[in-house]
Simulated assay, not measured.
Amino acid sequence: MAVQNERGSRTIKRTVTRTCTYLILAAAACFTMFPILWAVSTSLKPESEVLMYPPSFIPLTLTFENYYKVLFQSNYPVYFCNTILVTAITMLAAVMISSHAAYAFARLKFRFSDAIMFAVLMTAMIPAVAQLSPLYVLSVKTGLYNTKLVLILIYAAWRTPIMTWLLKGFFEQTPKEIEEAAVMDGCSRIKIFYQMVLPMSKPGIASVALLSAVFVWNDYLVSSSFVSSEQNRMLSIGIYNYVTAYGTMYGQLMGGVCMAIVPIVILFICLQKQFVAGLTAGAVKG
């Protein structure tokens, strides 16, 4: 009887703990999602209702006029395409460079390899603001200022060190025995890397690729410093066109923000399994 009572009390404690955990997680999710839901609500309101006091969370008059103005009466599509192009090329370039460098540091032990890896990682610790002036002068001297190429080069250079460090950890966790067996079968190091190591490291590559894409997509500092023309402007800068000296067009601003969120959400959904697996890959040893 005492055993049954003890089991019952444990079950009750477990149920209460689980319920409290779910309630806390639900409250945190609501707290996080509220600004996004408010932005969606604001984007579906006419301008007169946006400025109404007291404000209403649910639109009294549902309208898609803000989205129409953003898409067809502004340069938002140009900013959107520029951001997708720069983000995609930067992500591919950074993954390509960092994956090769990380595998070299993980498997090809050479003289001063640890010191070089530390020096590479140290470059990621330099404040971005401290690099703006020399990069600006360099871009002007080379004729790359106000081009998409300068953004791609800077973003890729900034993301490669930290991505190399992260991927090095993933490559070190891949079993060496598989590579040694492939060498015994006559496979070259390049063939082993492309046909065996990279497929086994998909979660790590997806994780660093997603983190790189989010960084480029949300960046304001570089895109505002190295691009000044409308045809090369990024989305993070173009959205601020709705904040003018005569007032803020909140409906169109929120419409542009909501559409800017969609690509990253889609990318995260597509890479969700690999991303979670990549984040938890090093949690358990062995």
Rank of each mutant, 00 (worst) to 15 (best):
M1I: 11
N5I: 08
R7Y: 09
G8E: 12
S9T: 13
T21S: 13
T21H: 14
A27C: 08
A28D: 04
A28Y: 14
M33Q: 06
P35Y: 05
P35V: 12
L37M: 06
T42C: 12
K45Y: 00
E47I: 07
S48W: 15
V50L: 03
Y53Q: 14
Y53I: 06
I58P: 04
T63C: 03
N66E: 10
N66P: 02
N66G: 02
K69N: 15
L71Y: 00
F72Y: 01
S74Y: 00
F80G: 09
N82C: 08
N82E: 02
T83A: 01
L85A: 06
I89L: 11
V95Q: 10
S98R: 03
A102H: 05
Y103P: 05
A104G: 12
M117N: 10
F118L: 15
M125L: 08
P127L: 03
S133W: 07
S133A: 12
S139E: 04
S139V: 07
Y145F: 13
Y155G: 01
M163Q: 14
W165Y: 05
Q173D: 13
E177C: 09
A181C: 08
G186I: 02
F193I: 00
L198Y: 03
M200Y: 13
M200G: 09
V208A: 06
L211K: 03
V216M: 06
Y220L: 05
V222C: 10
V222E: 12
R233G: 01
M234A: 00
M234P: 08
M234S: 11
G238F: 00
I239A: 09
I239F: 03
Y242I: 07
Y242F: 15
T248Y: 02
T248W: 01
M254I: 00
V257I: 06
M259R: 01
V276E: 04
A277P: 11
K285R: 10
